[in-house]
Amino acid sequence: MAAKKSNGKTNLIGLRKREYRGGVTTLCAGCGHNSISNQIIAACYELNIVPEEIVKFSGIGCSSKSPAYFLNRSFGFNTLHGRMPSVATGASFGDTSLRAIAVSGDGDTSNIGLGQFKHVMRRNLKLVYIVENNGVYGLTKGQFSATAERGLKLKYQGENTYMPIDIIMEALSSDATFIARSFAGDAKQVKELLKAALTHEGLAILDIVSPCVTFNNRPESKHSYDWGKEHEQQLHDFSFVPKEEEIMIDGEFPEGSTRTITMHDGSTLVLKKLESDYDPGDRWNAMRVVEKSNQEGVLLTGLIHLNTRRASLAKMHNLPEDRPLNRMTERELRPAKKTLDALNAKMF
């Protein structure tokens, strides 16, 4: 598709925003997941991504229904509970030139899917892995998930007496290469982080607190809108500058107050210092900062860790760059007849 100049109604590749939309959502009105779906649509539109060059994946749960509600022109696979990472891993080899967005939930990732979550980080699959985190099972009507805080009280379940699993700490301990936390109520940050994640050549974990308005939205719950709004603390003012645009750093910020990070495709992440200068390259410090925020009851958001040096899964497999595996034919895939005689001679 030839690049066109945007006329305000279309993006640079001539698509209207509606061409990035999906089916009508069947999630509850006010669900945080719908807001995230909207930011996925906006990020892909603004990045001028051809929808056919995205593949969507999900597991099972409310969150995992949402890929049906964005990017209708993209292929998608709604897989099994907790096992989206394995399907995405296998499918990624079909055509490694494509980008992939996966949506999971806190139950899907931290309960049934904790094993696959850890292993997909080991492999550094090129995938935007979104955890729509609300601390509760929605489709089965309000049971605790493993990210629910200790002491949380739910209508039919009583009090949660177990310690929560922290998605970000799990990702940090697994040395995932892109780790961010956000809040569905902070649409701008969600969108900017999504754009950055989409340009990352590896696994990008986005743990997004996405309130469940039906089962877990009381103000004292750590996954509610009220709590998020009151306790969100941004690590930095984060913005994504695509490679086509010049980086404009606001003159009023003193020197040294801005970090810039160049991504593989030439785009830039601009991190403006807020309370302190935070270096997302320092994993050890990230663990300390996240642990401290957890203890202080703060919802710390932003790009928590980034490592652009490690090779993605596809790169580790020495595949041809010029043509996808799924377009290869018998000519390339079936060894010549003469090779079989040599093989038979070896069989004794």
């Binding site: 995405a88 696959q116 595949l319 799924n326 377009r327």
Partner: peptide
């Protein structure tokens, strides 16, 4: 070039082994 037209992964368990194979089959491999 030494390039490969296949990929092999030792999975973390059989759940993942079949999941990957299903994903790959779905993608046309």
């Amino acid at each position: 070039t030494g390039e490969k037209n296949y990929a092999i992964i030792q999975a973390e368990d059989e759940l993942a082994a079949i999941g990957m194979a299903v994903g790959a089959g779905w993608s046309g491999l």
